[in-house]
Structure formats: C-alpha cells, structure tokens
Amino acid sequence: MNRKIVNKRLDSLFKALGILTTVFGILVLLVLFIDVFLDGASRLSMNFLTSFPSRKPEAAGILSAWVGTIWIMAVTALIALPLGIGSAIYLEEYAPKNRLTGLIEISIANLAGVPSVIFGLLGLGLFVRWFNLDRSVLAGGLTLAILVLPVIILSTREALRAIPFSIREASYAVGATKWQTVYFQVLPAALGNIMTGVILAMSRAVGETAPLITIGALTYIAFLPQPPVTFSGGFPFMHFSLQGLFDPFTALPIQIFNWVSRPQKGFSVNASAGIIVLLGITLAMNSIAIILRYRQRKKTRW
C-alpha cells in the first residue's frame, strides 16, 4: 500500500519535471522569437528585400544576401543530392558487407558529427586555394555540399532500410532485376522519407555561418552573381551562363552576423529583420518536410 503511494508520487513528480523542462525550452524559444520580432518587424518591407547593403542602416537591405543564399543552396543541392542519394543506394543495396564498407560506414557516421567550422577549413584549403575557386558561389556551395553529404547519406539509407524485404521479394518474384527493383519499387517507396531527410539537411545548411565565414565569404556585396539565364530583345532571346558560379557572394547568415557586430542601433534592427526572414525560410522548409513525411505515412501502411 505504502509502496503504491510512493510510486504514484514518483510518477507525478517525473511528469511534473517533464512538463517543466518542455515548457522551459518552449518559453526560451518564444521569448527569443518575440524579442527578435519586436525588434525587426518594423524594418521588414519590400525595400529591405530589394536593397543592397549600405553604410546607412535605414537604406541597407538583404538583396545580395538572400539571392546569395539561393545560389549557394542550389549549388549545394545539385551536388549533394545525386552524390548523397547515389552513395546511399550503393551502400545500402549493392555494397558487399565487408571491412572496407564497414569502415566507410563508420566514417560517414562520424563525419555527420564533425563541427561545421572544420568543413569550412576543408573548403578553404581545397576549393578556395587548391582549386583556385576563390571566394565564389561554387566554393561556398561545394563546402556546404560536403557538410550536408554525410547527413543526406545517413538519412537516405535509413529511408531505404525502412522498405520491407517483402516488397523487394515481390519484385524479384515477377522477374525483375536488381536495378529494376531498386529503381521502380524501392526508391519510389522511399522517396517521401528521402526528401524529408534531404530538406531537413538543407534547412540546417541554410543557417550555417561558420563554414562560409571560414572560406572568407564577403559581407559587403553591392552586386548579384550573374543570373544563369538572361533574356534579351534580339535573337536568340535567351542566354545561358555559368559565370554566376564564379562570382563572389554573401549569404543571409553572414549578413546577419555582420550587422550584429556593428555598434549602431540601426544595424541590430536590420539583423533582427534578417533573422525573421531566415527563420521564415527554415520554418517553410521544415514544414514541407513534415508534410512530406505525413503524406508518406498515410500512403504506406505495410
């Protein structure tokens, strides 16, 4: 009897502790959000989004920063997606289980936990100096691609592993080859979860500041990388160019970092406004990931 009461008390105690810690976390976040919002909301305007940085805080905007972020993310995705998903397919579906692949697996898992500054140093040494890419969009994209690669490989493998063996069996049993089974059955069935992992990895990369600062991304840029497609009145009307890849860039987190470290009050308001935009992007990406995961769950009840 006594024991029962003690257990009950312990139960309530743990429950209260659990609620307390959760509420604490949420409260801190909420206070941060509200603070940032109160600071920056007044600065949010079309003008803010379409202006280049400036010496005068009231005139400064984040145009080069968000365009740079989109450039970097596009390059990162274009490189990390095929490489990451491809490696995951190989390791999960094709690779023999031996010491070498075991070593590769452990390395990937470890790389996923390496601090991002280290990837920045790697990018600086490899892409900026060795490949002579300078502080370009391409160097930044490559650096972030290497940063997210291990995470994408791990989450893709997880998604592939979640596809039941019985689906593969069913495919082989009607006479499919290995690649047909992987391409037509396993991949489509895993796609929702793969994309969820990819988007979450990318949303982490969007906010990465350290590696980009390490490779020396500029903080004051008053022009945009050359767009990949331009239009003109005369023949052939459409022009393609990859020159933008080699142009210098800045990105949202870098711009924010730069403004935060300025003494004038106006710039810290700008920083808050920038943070709101960055949070908005991250939130949107995470929402897409959640929706994808939800749809996948509904579609497949094995």
Binding site: S166, I167, E169, V174, G175, A176, T177, P188, A189, T300
Partner: peptide, 21 residues
C-alpha cells in the same frame, strides 16, 4: 507469399509492373 505483399502503388500498376519490366 505468406503475407500479402502488394507494391505501395495503384492496383493497375501492381499488375502492369511485371509486364513493363
């Protein structure tokens, strides 16, 4: 097989798959 193992696709695609490949 023992446990029904349809592909997580449409009824039509389940059957057409073997033919397509």
């Amino acid at each position: 097989f023992q446990k029904p193992n349809p592909f997580p696709k449409s009824i039509y695609e389940n059957i057409a798959y073997g033919l397509r490949i």
